[in-house]
């Protein structure tokens, strides 16, 4: 029995030090975290999340936005919208954050090899997809056409703008950006992100789609992808529910028969399609 008690409690975080803080947008920032106590390599899969704890405030799930190929730090991008993220917003280099994870399922980046890849995302939803984009770019020749379709509220809300511009300018990659609201100064597209799907350059019958953003956006994006002929099983979505433990113990993130923290957050759409329909499930 003592051997059991000696097991590490998955609810206890490990201390990480903030190595860098980068302000991305007016309310969005990126933290680079390194282990505070001992050197250890960090591995995660694109789409996974960590539980981050701010001393005296609380703990929340935040997806990982860094490069899975870089093993000495973890990178998180988030918006300052709640107690914990607002506290993080005020933190600086050298301070400690508690980390548990990584948790959850990943974007099927390797399974998508040999297919076209369509990434449909909006707002902060680009953050959990960035690791997948890095991984695809690191092995670009393994994929067919790669399209990123990104929607933001206004031109000022475009996350990772420099990187989007860079991606558009390199390799064989279609990067399309649209915003909901803009003035005449904005030279780009105005309209919902789903509109980009209609004429994107991909073969719907040989396409794997990754969709991440607000649930309403995902519903309409999936509809449009399906209308174009992409199969529901080839569409992957990342869902958000109240994840408190990350390990399937606390029950808060249940969605039908799934624990979003453990069985998700990334699901093939056909596995959760009915749950998009039933309200308040």
């Amino acid at each position: 029995m003592n051997q059991m008690a000696a097991l590490v409690d998955p609810m206890v975080p490990a201390p990480f030090r903030i190595e860098r803080v980068k302000k991305e947008l007016s309310d969005t920032f990126t933290l680079d975290l390194v282990p505070a106590e001992r050197k250890r390599s960090i591995s995660f899969l694109p789409g996974q999340f960590n539980m981050l704890y701010v001393f005296g405030v609380g703990e929340i799930p935040i997806s990982i936005s860094g490069d899975p190929g870089v093993g000495d730090k973890i990178v998180h991008t988030t918006r300052a919208v709640g107690n914990v993220t607002n506290a993080m917003w005020k933190m600086g280099v050298g301070q400690t954050i508690g980390v548990r994870g990584p948790f959850g399922t990943a974007w099927p980046v390797e399974e998508a090899e040999g297919s076209d890849v369509v990434i449909v995302t909006g707002g902060i939803g680009l953050a959990p997809l960035r690791p997948a984009i890095y991984q695809i770019l690191a092995n670009r020749q393994a994929y067919g056409n790669v399209c990123i379709m990104y929607g933001a509220r206004t031109p000022e809300d475009i996350l990772f703008r420099k990187e989007l511009e860079k991606w558009r300018g390199q390799f064989d990659m279609q990067v399309d950006v649209t915003v909901d609201h803009a003035t005449g100064r904005w030279g780009g597209k105005v309209g919902v992100v789903t509109k980009l799907i209609g004429r994107g350059g991909f073969d719907p019958h040989h396409t794997v789609a990754f969709v991440c953003g607000p649930e309403v956006m995902m519903r309409y994006a999936v509809d449009t992808l399906v209308e174009r002929g992409v199969s529901e099983k080839d569409i992957h979505v990342s869902l958000e529910r109240n994840m408190k433990c990350g390990i399937g113990f606390c029950g808060h993130c249940q969605l039908g028969g799934d624990f979003v923290c453990k069985d998700g957050p990334v699901f093939p759409f056909d596995a959760v399609a009915d749950r998009f329909v039933i309200q308040e499930l």
């Binding site: 008690a5 390990i247 113990f249 453990k262």
Partner: peptide, 8 residues
Amino acid sequence: NGEFADPA
């Protein structure tokens, strides 16, 4: 649950 266990 196969992935995680509550040691206590």
